[in-house]
Amino acid sequence: MLPNAKTCHYPRTPAEAIRILKDSGPRALILAGGTTAALSSDPKVEVLLDITRLGHDGIQAAGRGFRIGCNARLQEVASFAPLRSFCTGLVAQAAGAVGSRPIRNAATVGGNAVQVFRWSDPPVAWLAMNARFEIEGPAGARTVSADEFYARHPRQALDGAELVLGVHLESPEGPHAGAFSKLARTAFDLAMVDVAVLLSGSRKSCQEARIAIGATRTLPWRATRAEERLRGKPLSAEALAEAARLTREDTQTAADARTSKEHRLHMVEVMVRRTLERAAAELR
């Protein structure tokens, strides 16, 4: 219950939305899927802004990849057939890992990307894919890479009146394969550990490796030392295991109600190794 919300706007264009955001400042709350907003009781909020009617709700093929509109629902991403094979289904799997069906039916790609929680699954995939976020605001349009977008909390990356309008995905040139893994207690649970990897090249010689980890700290992060360990090298069992060990060493985490710190660290290593093995198996 937002006790002081008085009005709700339904902008039809991004420009209209940006104008209202600019005028209302911190009194405004953006509603996309609304799954987070509905649980808020923030007394500052007076103006609601339902952005689900300003378009940008489809998924289109573009170049070596796709553009996913900010208003696409996570369930659409999870079940969109071309995405289920794109990069071995990495993105579709991450979207399908979120909560349960009714949550995926409500939550949008844009809302989920910005309103990121420690356990959010899709941002891990965006990071592994090095997705580009299409942002529009009072000062015009810009694109930001996932690396930059998740370097700090995305809401800080956005100026108050900016909107994410879409996510651009592009597969690496040449042979590549991805994989996503979520570890949780039950099928409908928040992640204990998320791992997304994207490998290019061949098993004999890895050209590029991107390894993204979620649920261990506030924001998803990339295991760059592990990536470097694989770059230009054969994807042998030892190499993958060592990359997993390096990832574990670089993991900062803490205990929570789901698991202890030690166990989560151990799981990071196991899950990274297994996810790398799955992706590597897809390469020639």
Binding site: L2, A5, C8, Y10, L31, G33, G34, T35, A37, A38, L39, L48, D50, T52, R73, Q75, R101, P102, I103, N105, A106
Partner: peptide
Amino acid sequence: RSVRACLLLAAQAEG
């Protein structure tokens, strides 16, 4: 589409 009524604000149902 199946959704949770408790996770939607009333205003989002408009139209």
